[in-house]
Amino acid sequence: MQKLNLPPYDVNLRKMDGKIHIFDPIRKKFLVLTPEEWVRQHFIQFLIQYKNYPAGLIKSESGLKYHERKKRTDLTVFNRKMEPLLLIECKAPEVKITNNTFSQIANYYSQFKAKYMIITNGLEHYCFGPDAKEFVFEKDIPDFSDL
């Protein structure tokens, strides 16, 4: 898999049914390793190991309804009151982050009302909060203790 712009970690890989799987500590199971899953698992570890987010407050692939269609966020991070803090959209490294990507996560925000939204393809990371008329970008992804 491609080297990412995220700190490395001890990846737990296993070959099953002829495919490589990666362990997801949030769902506590092995998942088929895809480029997007590679990014998601690295970002989970980044949040836990470097930004001090408790693993128990991270949910992977949270479901929601948007215009009567079922959608899901890649990652949702909650505060200790179980209110959404971060909505995170992960893309494969080869996927370019465009205005459509920002629109996608903004639609999710309308359901979750998190404090921040993050978009990452493992190479580029954008953290922003909603404002009345525009996205307000942060210089860095906030540490859990800062929220």
Rank of each mutant, 00 (worst) to 15 (best):
A55L: 12
L85D: 05
L86G: 00
I58P: 06
F137G: 08
I48E: 10
L75S: 04
I26P: 03
P35N: 04
L57D: 06
H67N: 15
F102C: 02
R80E: 15
K139G: 09
Y108E: 11
K71R: 13
L64P: 00
M117L: 13
K113V: 02
R72H: 10
K28Y: 10
M82E: 13
G63W: 11
L75I: 02
D24Y: 05
S103T: 11
C90I: 05
E134V: 12
D24S: 05
K59V: 09
H67A: 14
I118N: 06
P8E: 14
F128T: 06
I20N: 13
V39R: 05
R14I: 14
N107G: 15
H67M: 10
Y9V: 04
H67G: 00
I88H: 02
R72E: 02
Y66S: 11
P54F: 06
P54I: 05
V11S: 11
P7I: 10
D10I: 13
F128M: 01
G122W: 02
E134D: 14
K51L: 14
D24R: 01
F23I: 01
K29C: 05
V32E: 08
E61T: 09
E89C: 01
Q111W: 02
S145V: 09
F102E: 12
L31Y: 05
P8R: 08
N121D: 08
D74A: 03
L4N: 03
T34L: 04
D24Q: 08
C127V: 13
N5D: 15
P25E: 06
Y9P: 01
L64Q: 11
P142I: 12
H42S: 04
V11C: 08
Y53A: 05
S60H: 13
K115N: 08
L86F: 03
T76I: 14
R72K: 13
G63K: 13
R80G: 07
H42N: 12
P25M: 00
T76E: 06
V136R: 13
F112A: 08
M16W: 12
V77H: 01
K139A: 09
